[in-house]
Design a protein around this nucleic acid. Structure first.
Length: 368
DNA sequence: AAGTCGTGGTT
DNA sequence: TAACCAAGACT
């Protein structure tokens, strides 16, 4: 509605702060370069946004660098093997992101000449790109006036206006407010400025209101208890599950692995054989789920917490003479374990049976 | 539309 | 230490 940045507006104060205090990030084009007419590479923006979904900046940095070094553009990623992409993603979590990343690259290479749509709606239609990511790419890469609402923005805006409606119900209201505040001449910087403010000043706990550029605008700061916002709906209690995992070790140190089904938890990732993970607390930590009869011996247990349940796995180990891998399984050489698409919970299971077995190189695969 | 999907850091 | 949380998407 308002044309350029309205002098004295919330957006103006935020952008002035951003010009001075923005974070320097590997995928970011700084405001000075933007002002000079440069735009970031949409591939970089897209890749970083997918990686950053529910993931911290520090966790993403090495993966972003590794992916960019190995697959510098859409076409190279489209030419890659999905299995290699999964291996490179291992450890970052939410593995459907990696599968959708590859699907998206394939689609773009096949049907869009390797280029990204430059509108919010066009982007929203891509696999793995939801409302947030579509708006973020549209604003940051293509300078579109899109309302970018992530967890940071929800926190900043809910405090700014002391919104009492609990999340996620308040999301539509927050989106409307952001659309109203949005400066049409710098939508990308505005989005990144709001997120930087949320990450460095308007933090979930103990926000630094004193240096905040929006302190005089902020209703929650007025009330003296900004941490009360955003109001959130109560969460369900996290259930507990148990199971057993089986680490078979061949004479030469190789470990028996198999691939999980493509869908669901840890879909398409590699695992050691395990029993089903059930809510039962009795009778599951037995050798009955082993891939084959052997002298299985309990070597310990590991705990792991997923988003919606906690898991305890009893670990069994068997040392075997040479024997062929059962159907659907393979022997992975000890030296190659770190290159497998092993999620963290599986690395824990292997470590419990063979200390040091999964110690990985300093950089994610693809960096060296 | 509420549940499913990882992991590591912070408090 | 147990809980909370991070640039959410998909079904």
């Amino acid at each position: 509605m308002d044309t350029p940045v309205v002098a004295g507006s919330v957006a103006a104060r935020l952008l002035t702060w951003y010009d001075r205090h923005h974070r320097d990030l590997p995928w970011r084009m700084p405001p000075k370069a933007i002002a000079a007419g440069q735009r970031p590479d949409p591939y970089h923006v897209w890749l970083s946004e997918i990686m950053l979904q529910q993931t911290t900046v520090e966790a993403v940095k090495p993966y972003f660098r590794a992916f960019l070094a190995r697959w510098p553009n859409v076409k190279s990623l489209a030419a890659a093997e999905t299995e290699d992409v999964m291996k490179a993603w291992a450890g970052l979590g939410y593995y459907s992101r990696a599968r959708n990343l590859k699907k998206c690259a394939d689609l773009l290479a096949a049907e869009h000449g390797g280029r990204f749509p430059d509108t919010e709606d066009g982007l929203r239609a891509l696999p793995g790109v939801g409302s947030y990511t579509a708006a973020a790419i549209a604003a940051i890469a293509f300078n579109r006036p899109a309302a970018v609402v992530d967890g940071n923005v929800e926190r900043v805006v809910s405090r700014l206006y002391a919104i009492e409606t609990p999340l996620p119900a308040a999301k539509a209201e927050i989106r409307d407010i952001v659309a109203r505040l949005l400066p049409v001449d710098r939508p990308g910087d505005f989005a990144q400025a709001t997120m930087d403010l949320g990450a460095t000043i308007c933090t979930p706990r103990r926000p630094a209101c004193l240096p905040c550029p929006l302190r005089d605008d902020c209703h929650a700061s007025d009330d003296g208890d900004p941490e009360r916002f955003p109001v959130k709906a109560a969460k369900a209690e996290k259930p507990f599950r148990r199971g057993a995992a089986f680490v078979a070790v061949r004479g030469d140190g190789a470990i028996l692995l198999r691939k999980r089904i493509e869908s669901g938890l840890l879909g398409g990732m590699t695992e050691v054989p395990t029993t089903a993970w059930t809510a039962r607390t009795d009778g599951v930590a037995t050798v009955e789920g082993a891939p084959f009869p052997a002298d299985w011996r309990k070597t310990g247990s590991i705990s792991h917490v997923f988003t919606h349940f906690a898991l305890e796995l009893t670990i069994f180990r068997a040392d075997l003479a040479n024997r062929p891998a059962p159907p659907g399984h393979w022997w992975a050489d000890a030296a190659d374990i770190h290159g497998e698409a092993l999620p963290t919970v599986m690395k824990k299971a292997i470590e419990a049976a063979i200390p040091g077995a999964t110690q990985k190189p300093r950089h994610p695969r693809g960096m060296n």
